[in-house]
Amino acid sequence: MPSSCKQLAIVMLAALLAGCGVFGKKGDETEGWSAAKLYAEASAELKAGSYQRAIELYEKLEARYPFGRYAMQAQLDVAYAHYRADEPEEALAAADRFIKLYPQNPYVDYAYYLKGIINYNRGISFLDRLIPTDASQRDPGAALDAFKDFAVLVERFPNSKYAEDARQRMVYLRNNLAMNEVHVARYYLKRGAYLAAANRANHVIQHYQRTSAVDDALEVLIAAYRALGKDDLAADAQRVLDLNRQAGRFAPEPAPPERPDLLQRVWEALKLDED
């Protein structure tokens, strides 16, 4: 083949490939969308359960229109979308970002509440949702984080509409944290680490008063003292246990709080969907 023909073939092939690249390129359908349209579409995807698509649209909204009420609300909604997409770390990061950027926002209490809910459910596996399990036997790390988040909400925003639910969850979480300590104490007792068992039980009695776990902690304490040969201390603990049981002073085990309806989000109060 003559060199001129080869050159022509190469040029035509290059043009063909370039054409494929141009015509095959997928455009961004959201190009030119207003902040209101981006927000409306993202919210619709969120309600429909298309969480990743909602996140994508919220992030585009924040990038293109970083100022204004739509970008502000997108911060909260993207946190919720990550939570529903089972991405707790991303959800917590988004909620923290909102709190940092808008500390005086009238809806910042929701961000704290959402953080608590995220951590509250973070330790619950798919199997836990199918088969009810003892929540006090899970890793207490997430429960402790949730308790702290709810405590901040209740302390800073005592009149928040989320405060009462947060208080109920704190009662439930506190009891679970106490029972987790009792489980550890029982483990030590079973392994023959009687002093460690007694110390754990005493910790529950001293730091988790007014929880149902105190009853169990006293039983462990009595068994540990008897195993250690401290019969006088065991008798004292038995007397305390009997007196409190007879007087009905031990708190009943709290029922798990109901799942909150987080679909009633703040954007409804802001009426952003009316534009």
Rank of each mutant, 00 (worst) to 15 (best):
M1W: 13
S3D: 15
C5Q: 15
K6L: 14
V11I: 14
A15Q: 03
A15R: 09
A15M: 13
A15F: 07
L17V: 09
G21H: 06
F23H: 12
G24L: 12
K25N: 13
W33H: 06
A35Y: 06
L46D: 00
L46W: 01
S50P: 11
Y51V: 08
A54R: 00
L57R: 03
K60Q: 06
P66E: 00
F67H: 08
F67Y: 14
Q73T: 06
L76N: 04
L76F: 02
Y80I: 02
H82M: 06
H82T: 00
Y83W: 03
R84D: 03
R84Y: 06
D86P: 10
E87K: 05
E90M: 12
L92E: 02
R97G: 00
I99M: 07
K100T: 02
K100F: 10
Y110R: 04
A111L: 07
Y113R: 07
Y113E: 02
G116L: 11
I118V: 11
N119L: 11
Y120G: 01
Y120H: 00
R122A: 15
R122S: 14
G123S: 06
S125M: 07
F126C: 12
T133H: 14
A135Y: 01
R138M: 14
D139R: 03
A142K: 04
D145F: 12
D145N: 15
F147L: 11
F147A: 11
F150M: 05
F150D: 05
F150A: 07
A151G: 01
A151N: 12
V152H: 12
V154M: 07
V154L: 05
E155Q: 08
R156V: 01
P158E: 00
P158T: 03
S160D: 01
A166R: 04
R167F: 05
M170K: 11
R174Y: 07
N175Y: 04
Y188I: 06
Y188C: 05
K190P: 15
R191F: 09
A193L: 09
A201S: 02
V204D: 05
Q206S: 15
Q209F: 08
T211A: 04
T211Q: 02
V214H: 03
A217M: 03
V220F: 07
A227F: 01
K230S: 10
D231W: 01
A235Q: 05
Q238R: 10
V240Q: 12
L241F: 04
Q246T: 06
F250W: 02
P252A: 05
E253L: 13
P254W: 10
A255W: 05
P256I: 11
E268W: 10
E274P: 02
